[in-house]
Amino acid sequence: MSADGTGPILAAEAITKQFGGLTAVNDVSFAIPRGAIVSLIGPNGAGKTTFFNILTGLYKPTLGRVRFEGKDITAVRPDKIMALGIARTFQNIRLFGTMTALENVMVGQHARMKAGLFGSILRPPRVRREEQRVRDKAAEALEYVGLRSALHEQLATNLSYGDQRRVEIARALASDPKLLLLDEPTAGMNPQESEDLTRFMERLRDELGLSILLIEHDMKVVMGVSEHVTVLDHGEKISEGDAQTVRTDPLVVEAYLGKQEAERQRQGGVV
């Protein structure tokens, strides 16, 4: 394990998560190479989001550990994990509804700010400058994701679905993350929009040097963009490799389509 920039940026080692008697994630190991876009896929209820929540500190794994740039971040608080450089979006968009788009993105920079209670009240020049810097950066992030500047001061709840997705990504980007975790970002998008998002993720990787972990249950989305795909089903890792390998893995086909259907397809030769 190294922090010198050669090892994987994130490595999850033998993660198990149990809720009461239920095992949501079972012994899953997983690594994200630096500067890569990798995907975690699986049918609904496969444990993807649980795994995601473990990476971001919302859950503590029952067993196993998570390393980020060589540092053990297992059971580190979510806000500290964010401060270390892992930012995320949510499957069901979780913006702060009564804040404006700009304010939402400013909250994303909370960990990068210093103003405390008295600084906030007295507002010395240092705090004013910080506030201005954060505001500018938020506007910049919003423009980067393509939110019209006329909408920056709109309350998040009043934005269209697509715009809310953008704001959520901007909010994550504004914290200058090294690793971006996207939880089903194409949910509710049409094929053209999904395609655009795919291009955007590549842009993020190439322009900002981000590593990206993508969760999807729609296999088509991930195939075009990810270098590496891991498949979960019933909390277990059933397959991993490049898109092609995974796509033809009978276990994966079965997990997605059910045994019978898989059988039929194999005979028909259609995937």
Partner: peptide
């Protein structure tokens, strides 16, 4: 909404 990746001119 239009897609996220679409380049939009900053108004």
């Amino acid at each position: 909404s239009t897609a996220v990746g679409v380049e939009e001119r900053a108004q």
